[in-house]
Design a protein around this nucleic acid. Sequence first.
DNA 1: GGGTATTTGTTCGTATGTATT
DNA 2: TAATACATACGAACAAATACC
Lengths: 239, 239
Amino acid sequence: MATGMLLWREISQSLERRILARELAPGDKLPTEDELSRQFMVNRHTVRRALSDLQEKGIVESTQGRGSYVRRPSAPMRLQKRPRFTDHVRERGRTPRTQTLKLQVRPADSRVAAELGLRAGQPMIYLERQRFVDDEPTGLSQHHFSHDRFPTFIEMYRSRGTITQTLIDSGVLDYTRRRTAISARLPTVHEAELLHVPRHVPLLVHRYLNIDSLGRPLEYGISRSTTEVEIDFPEPDRD
Amino acid sequence: MATGMLLWREISQSLERRILARELAPGDKLPTEDELSRQFMVNRHTVRRALSDLQEKGIVESTQGRGSYVRRPSAPMRLQKRPRFTDHVRERGRTPRTQTLKLQVRPADSRVAAELGLRAGQPMIYLERQRFVDDEPTGLSQHHFSHDRFPTFIEMYRSRGTITQTLIDSGVLDYTRRRTAISARLPTVHEAELLHVPRHVPLLVHRYLNIDSLGRPLEYGISRSTTEVEIDFPEPDRD
DNA sequence: GGGTATTTGTTCGTATGTATT
DNA sequence: TAATACATACGAACAAATACC
């Protein structure tokens, strides 16, 4: 050895240079691991380490049985403090779409119960959705509401198709975000598949609480996406 | 096999359960890889895969020649108009420390210049710092100020040791956060070393602009840490 | 739809280098 | 200096997902 440089890193950087130089363009298929290990005259494990590094950086994406491909860069979407997903997307001339994955009543776990002011085990509405922009998957979300407060939520949501409209028709004319906690983690296999990102691209996880105009907790949500967030503090306040 | 479950995942989850159950407490040393491979009766590589998984999740930390340790969890950082790191840490009964890594005058690049209302190439104060909580590294930050506005910043900061005091003594009695953009990415090698995290634990990157009481841009900063962020919206606003 | 080849994913084994104690 | 423990790399085999005919 004694090159002063890790083998796999050399390979990773060599491939990255070729990608940045557009020698390998977005969407292109990389040589197979076997082929690369012959080209670089190293063990396949070493190639795999290099590819794993490029996956972490979000530069390439590998799928079992398919191969490794150069990822297409996605335009970072900016979220606002009070998100109206569809409006926000349409303002930028793109087409939003929301798909419902799950909609059911289930007992609240202690975490969600505490947030919604319920007792653990009480029934809650659980709604899971996926968002798309121009048919590219961009986000996953889980929504929780008190079933006691919205006993007909499921039927109403099914016919109306949006949370906002369902709430309005349930008598909640307005609601706002009370608090959001943001953390980052790597996606699960499932999330990576749905969001069409490699497992090594970090997700931003939002855990938020929405309240009604009286300040009562209304919805507890968890959303995951890769998009950057921006927070504005419009007018400096004095305390 | 036919367990329906990946070996390394089983091991990773087993270890994670023991850690969550406080059987292995934060700061504790995990058994060596050899020991674990004997306990679980698998190859050391399989143990290493499991440990790598726990590192990605930020639960354990491994160092060559030292062993693997359970990482200490950190409390969420609150995103406010007036971020006060030291107060916030002390409120939780822990000891904050800030170390200056770099302090110099350098020409502003176009990005920072635009944020601070300068022209590219104009001199700016560049300050790089590292934050610790209980001597555990928790964050890295880069701060940018106009050199024309604060010509004696470097000497003042050296003697006072804090940004806030330096600004006060420069006539800026109050300043607030105007905007923060948050994104996630994997750390560079350098960042991973300084922050004492594995390369696979995502960092939250904050890019923010602070303004003075007249609304003029004062400081452009970039901070990187693994700690969760919490944002409160005390009074719901109408738009 | 089915069978086969291709390709990545997982796991075992082994050897050697390097940092810490 | 020696022992311990993690890091890197190579080799081999099989599993699992995908693509192709």
